[in-house]
């Protein structure tokens, strides 16, 4: 049976990709941010997942506004990165796991999550940067990856509670997969930031730290927040933090907190790393 080994959260700020490409991890601006990934990398090395499911939002690379799926699952053999219009060098393509993806799609629809299935899906910084921060760059990635995109760009976006429920359904879907596949869920995006409007530049470190604590040990607290509550405190783009709840929902209620790391600002953003072990006693 497939096993959920644990979950990791990570922000997915574009500048993080540039820092990795330019090897700036030990520069003063970046050192504390990247060093805080150390324990997460260590844990991941021992966890040895076969597959990571990356919960992220597309920022206008794969999805235009003609069709905006609320939840979209990659069901392909391979996923390609692209330059996103910024002229950056794309990273190597990611190998997917189509049989697992299609199983997830079947199980999620059975559980009344009517997910959009994607046989072609370009993956942007939201998907790529957390993998790069955790694994470094590779020509052949050491893990298979499945994208699960959540609309956080065009409102109405799903609520934190809906994301939490999707996570629970995802957990059930994985438990019913007959192959012995080891899975880690990455919940990406956030934390507090606002890029647009006269209110741009919002970072609320107290709220971010509270969110990290509560998502780990009292996810109902976060599930009770409305999207307006979250945007009011954490900024319009801070709404991305709802995607952490997909990861949280997939894990056991008493999953063990292995690591917590928070740094701000990176670019315009508060950046958090949470590692939860689903098997630790």
């Amino acid at each position: 049976m497939a096993k959920i080994i644990g979950g990791i959260t990570s922000s997915h700020i574009p500048a993080v990709g540039n820092a990795i490409s330019n090897n700036l991890q030990q520069e003063p601006y970046w050192k504390r941010f990247f060093d805080g990934y150390g324990p997460a990398k260590e844990w991941l090395k021992n966890a040895r997942p076969d597959v990571v499911i990356v919960v992220y939002n597309d920022h206008g690379l794969n999805f235009f506004l003609d069709t905006v799926p609320t939840f979209a699952l990659g069901c392909a053999d391979e996923y390609f990165n692209a330059d996103e219009g910024w002229g950056l060098k794309p990273v190597a393509p990611f190998k997917g796991n189509a049989p697992l993806s299609w199983h997830l799609a079947e199980s999620l629809v059975e559980q009344e999550f009517d997910i959009t299935m994607c046989q072609e899906m370009k993956v942007d910084h939201g998907f790529v940067n957390p993998i790069r921060a955790l694994y470094g760059d590779h020509e052949i990635w050491p893990v298979e990856a499945i994208p699960l995109a959540v609309n956080t760009v065009q409102h109405p976006v799903p609520t934190a509670r809906r994301c939490y429920k999707l996570g629970k359904a995802l957990g059930k879907a994985l438990e019913s997969y007959p192959e012995d596949t080891r899975v880690v869920i990455l919940g990406t995006g956030g934390m507090s930031h606002q890029l647009q409007g006269e209110r741009a530049g919002i970072i609320d470190t107290d709220f971010d730290l509270e969110c990290m604590d509560k998502i780990a040990t009292d996810p109902e607290w976060f599930a009770n927040l409305s999207n307006t509550d979250i945007m009011r405190i954490a900024g319009t783009e801070g709404i991305e933090t709802i995607m952490w709840m997909v990861m949280r929902g997939a894990l056991k209620d008493d999953a063990k907190v292995i690591h917590k790391h928070y740094h701000a600002p990176i670019s315009n953003t508060g950046a958090g790393v949470l590692v939860l072990d689903n098997e630790a006693e």
């Binding site: 760009v153 409102h155 409007g197 209110r199 307006t228 945007m231 009011r232 319009t236």
Partner: peptide, 13 residues
């Protein structure tokens, strides 16, 4: 919408 009252903010809807 309730979020229209957030100052300096243009929620993309």
């Amino acid at each position: 919408r309730d979020y229209d009252s957030i100052p300096g903010t243009y929620v993309f809807d």
